[in-house]
Amino acid sequence: MLSFILRRLVSVAATFIIVSLIIFFMMHSIPGGPFDANDMPVSEAVRAKLMANLGLDQPLYVQYFRYMWGVLHFDFGVPYQSPGETVTQLLSRAWVPSLVLGGLGVLIGAPLGILLGMAAALNRNSWIDYLASTLATLGLTIPVFVTSMLLILVFAVWLNWLPASGWGKPERWILPIAAYALIPLATYARYTRSAMLDTLNRPFVTVLRAKGLTERRIVFQHVLRNSAIPLVTVFLPMFIGTATGSIFVEAMFRVPGLGAYFVSSIETRDYPLEMALMLMITFMYCIAYLLSDIVYALINPRIRVGGGQ
């Protein structure tokens, strides 16, 4: 097990380096630079001075190594669009709403989705099953900005129960989180339903019934455990993937999270911020896959215990 984790850590590090290279050079290959804006033109001399100050006149590989050296020391540089603080400070400020929104969204959506998927699988071809399938399909096909607008229209405009946008107070959280939770809910409902149906159709379930076990024990001990094996591979990556913030939901409900910075950092060629955001996402995906591989190995005896006699 330890060697398995070590091997995976090596591959995580490799992935991280490769992704950082790709992002860095793609980012710089986009035409234009941070001081090209038309609304605040600067003279050629000033711009050259600024570029030199920020090290942008150096060859790309030098810039890359300088930046990555900083990353190794947890120094992600200073954002060009907000020079009064470091990237780290900016992120830790803007990340909180995103984390609350994404985290609560998944924490609410995932269990509901799993329950819905279970109910659908156990009552196949009943109204629960059809409801679950409909919800799952809608959740996966309707873009999140459409559902966001519908939520605003119904609950804020027509019923006037909840504020349409903003953050700050808890009642303002409800609509964005609801909009956000729909994606994990739909995904997990679908995955859980098909994983449980697969398991329920396996011969050993008939054997368990023939042994005289109660249906409750069969479902909760045997079927769930077996269905969880394929589920963990999608569970954690999705969790962390969604917790990094949703550009659309944040924009629709004007949540002051990371989403806006994704867009602005690319638009204004804010290289340090853009790089930091991308590296953060890469890192979280790597860790999520590492963790889910470990959990997968832990709950699957074929991997944990190894081959035949």
């Binding site: 050993f204 054997v207 368990l208 023939a210 005289g212 109660t214 455990r225 709950i299």
Partner: peptide, 27 residues
């Protein structure tokens, strides 16, 4: 329900064709 538990496994027990798939793989 109670009768079924008594029937299955106790009054009659069953063995199946393919032993490779008849056991739950995670226990």
């Amino acid at each position: 329900k109670e009768d079924l538990v008594r029937l299955r496994g106790r009054a009659a027990a069953m063995i199946f064709q393919d032993p490779m798939t008849a056991f739950d793989p995670v226990f």
